[in-house]
Design a binder for these strands. Structure first.
Lengths: 343, 343
DNA sequence: TTGTAGGCGTTATCAG
DNA sequence: CTGATAACGCCTACAA
């Protein structure tokens, strides 16, 4: 068979199969509408030519792309990987394909990515957390592209969300810690500006402190970006304070693992000399030594449900319905009860 | 301003600015060709309408998308993240945007993704390693889509590559290990089928054994997928063999970290009771305990150079030029010299 | 069940 | 420097 000079088109297939382009199109999108004979004829032609539909043309004509965009803060660590994987699998099952882009936690980058994804015809968008310029939500509404928020749950927010209550999760976790005797509490968080997850987790710790009669404003808090190194650096800084903390609550497992490394650098034993906790419960939490006491997030379920909901919003043309998932506390080996609770 | 009912088009902008659509198009793609007056008029209209060009229409007319696709085996761990980040940054600088998709190390998934990316009009493709059905290369050639291979270097392969010599890197590493007295060598590798990096690393170890007068067929080798758990499981299995190995060479850092966890489960100390090594030198290698002795891969440079070369292939319409990068051995704390070299 | 034909939003060629 | 206008490849009423 002579290799044609360019990519074959619907026309080529139609000619080879001796049918109209409409028939070929139907064979692709709604095969049930064809006689078995013609269907087979067309399929044979498609196979012979190695035809693949041109995406741009298709989405232009149909005004549908069957692709969904997801904008995440980073792919540098595994935090979002697991959930995204589940999201992707569910999407696949429903005939959608996923486009991911990451923002390095920068709000302006996010806006750019959102516009880009919309211009590319994404049928729907998944974003992380609620915090962003309200104008973005207006834009999306005007463009009629549905958005779903994940990793956060907030009924009062402008967009529907499938996630968990970061504040409550962290509050409960911190209460446990306080109950085990710790009083000199400190925290390493991701940058909380434009990041409701980080902010809510901090608030959760403060809530717990208040509940235990501690002044929440005394919380020793350091905000850093999101790498191991950031966690280690913050830990070192925290250990320079005078009454050293007895526990360091970290806003994420990645930061916590960094903190553990920091402790090792200082020759401190975890948890004997200092307790350290994480958040997210990614795989890493179990390979680090000691294994991390952390808050488990239902990554997989969150991703799957988000996919289902977003597809429903698109196909049924309806508003999204928020859903709140539960987190659980996972006690492993990085926390010890505090023996000398006084500062 | 009344919110229009749908996304504004070139036509809307043209009408508002009182020029032709051609002029608006030029204003977007080659502003230098316009009078300052008209340019400003058009830009004002664009701003007022909040106009964003429709991607499908644009790529259909221009037969160019300024997007590049990358297909990687997994985003579940950080192995490809760093290089991809650099790839993306360089692409950005040159006005291209990146589309990533992952295959979970499955060859059939890869083929599907490649076709998908081509159908979406990717101007070029980045793939990992050389191993794949030759028909794919034919398809890509026929579609006139340039491909560049990375993470592997092989001049004789059907596609140009910017990477390193996995076999030589591992050979040299293993020779070091042998020189330090180890004889009972074992290895945990990723599945080597359809994965030249894994295969070449195994061969590298065998090369080194031969060079030291050892029978390469005696290498205790276990192939597993790519997660921490896989590494841990393989380690456990390896330790059941009778003369226990004195060192476990892992095909990746992730596997090595899993192996370290396996050792801990067995109450073995690393490196006193057993040495363990990695490959890739991802961040993880420095947060694990003990820190991992491993092979450093120039992730960042590889990504950057790959972007440059791929863009050059696209814009200059020329064949790709392969480039071989160097790896280096990083000695950290997970290896101890062997005191009882005899089996 | 199948074919005809118009249109989707841009770019690019060619005049003016 | 600017304006018509013909593609680009496919979908989808509408008609037969």
């Amino acid at each position: 068979m002579p290799a044609s000079d360019a990519a074959p088109t619907l026309d080529d297939v139609a000619r080879l199969a001796d049918v109209s382009t409409a028939t070929v199109s139907r064979c692709l999108n709604d095969p049930g509408k064809l006689t078995q004979t013609t269907r087979e004829k067309v399929q044979a032609a498609i196979a012979e030519l190695g035809y693949t539909p041109n995406f741009a043309a298709r989405s232009m004509a149909a005004k549908r792309t069957f692709t969904i965009g997801a904008i995440i803060p980073t792919m540098e660590n595994a935090i979002f990987a697991r959930g995204l994987q589940a999201f992707q699998e569910e999407l696949d099952r429903r005939g959608y394909t996923l486009l991911v882009s990451s923002t390095a936690y920068r709000a302006d980058a996010e806006e750019k990515q959102i516009r880009n994804l919309v211009a590319r015809g994404a049928d729907g968008l998944l974003v992380i957390g609620h915090d962003r310029d309200p104008a973005i939500y207006d834009y999306l509404r005007q463009q009629r592209v549905p958005v779903l928020v994940t990793w956060s749950y907030d009924e009062t927010a402008p967009a529907p969300s499938i996630g968990f209550d970061n504040r409550a999760a962290m509050r409960q976790f911190a209460q446990n810690v306080l109950a085990s005797g710790h009083r000199r509490i400190s925290m390493i968080s991701s940058m909380s500006e434009q990041n409701d997850r980080a902010r809510m987790r901090i608030e959760g710790v403060r809530d717990a402190m208040s509940a235990h009669g501690l002044d929440p404003s005394t919380l020793a808090l350091i905000e850093v970006p999101y790498t191991f190194d950031d966690g280690a650096g913050a830990f070192l800084k925290l250990m320079q304070q005078d009454p050293k903390p007895s526990i360091v609550l970290c806003g994420s497992d990645v930061l916590a693992v960094g903190a553990i490394r920091g402790a090792r650098q200082l020759g401190m034993r975890v948890p004997q000399d200092i307790s350290i906790t994480g958040f997210d419960d990614i795989e890493l939490a179990q390979v680090t030594h000691p294994e991390l006491t952390t808050v488990h997030v239902p990554h997989h379920e969150m991703g799957r449900l988000a996919a289902q909901e977003l597809v429903a919003m698109i196909e049924d043309k309806r508003e999204g319905i928020s859903q709140r998932l539960d987190t659980t506390i996972i006690e492993r080996a990085s926390v010890a009860p505090c023996r000398s609770p006084t500062a």
